[in-house]
Amino acid sequence: MKYFMRKIVFFIVTIWIAITLNFILPRLMPGNPAQAMMSKFAQQGAITPSQEHALALMLGMPTGSLWTQYWQYLLHVCEGNFGVSYSFYPVKVITVIAGALPWTLTLVGLVTIIQFVVGTLLGVYAAWHRGRKFDSVATVLFSFTSAFPYFWIALLFIYLFGYILNWFPISGGYSGSLSPALNWSFVGSALYHSILPALTIFITGIGGSLLSMRNNMINTLGEDYILLGRAEGLSETVISIRYAARNALLPIVTNFAMTLGMVVGGSLLMETVFAYPGMGYLLSTALSNQDYPLLQALFLFITVSVLLANFAADIVYGFLDPRVRRGGAR
């Protein structure tokens, strides 16, 4: 219990630090968004002080001392109020994010999980039958696929399956003739559009999961308790899963949690290449439009989700590995 309490306290403190940093960083940068915008307008003609004031009000420029700004910011974060997006003006930042998050979470999240589960299981199989046909083929093949740059695979797939064969749409999250709603034609269209992005993420990601599980498991298979398990006459299933894979999985859980945390940031490359309406696409839009409120909120979302994933990993790890739980020596 002490372990879990410590982790919870640690988690809350890091979240607070992340939020505070997110508040301080933009304020450390020289200039502010209003000035940036004004210099743009200034090229077209002189700007009067009243126009400048109006612009500041429109963008919601903060007023007051740093402390009052900080408290206000904390309060707003708790309310989910991140201000108004510049690039989608006057839509609120939170609404913009709410529109993009589900796309990323379902597609990138699901594919990441499936890719991890399938890759890990295949890794267990390859390690258990190491040196046999499947292992030899898989090790070479997946070293190859995991070395591909993602954008290259994505472009290749778009060209091959989208352009030449015309099997799948080449961009977007759903057909342009539909509007988001929970009905069959929309869900069907969304699924259809998600196949190519999903495939490309899956193909480039699975190699890593497979190889790291395989290598870990081969290490574990050399341990004395595996030998003892054999001598005890335990069944192959018990030895391979309960003794070998169970222990080989431990270091991988942390890795996987980190990857899951990054999901919320979206797959920047994938969403850019496929113009997929998720968080990554939003991030690149916000960047190119100097949309400060949106950027700040996105950073906060990404940071918090990485922290959340790490926290989850710590908790899960505590259940999986008794050595961590009691903080004892080995």
Binding site: D224, A231, G233, R246, P322
Partner: peptide
């Protein structure tokens, strides 16, 4: 497999990893 442990058992150097740590 049936005969193992019921007829012949082994004891390894018990130090580090003779038992499944989890």
């Amino acid at each position: 497999r049936k005969l193992r442990w019921s007829k012949i058992a082994i004891v390894l150097q018990g130090g580090m990893n003779a038992f499944n740590p989890v």
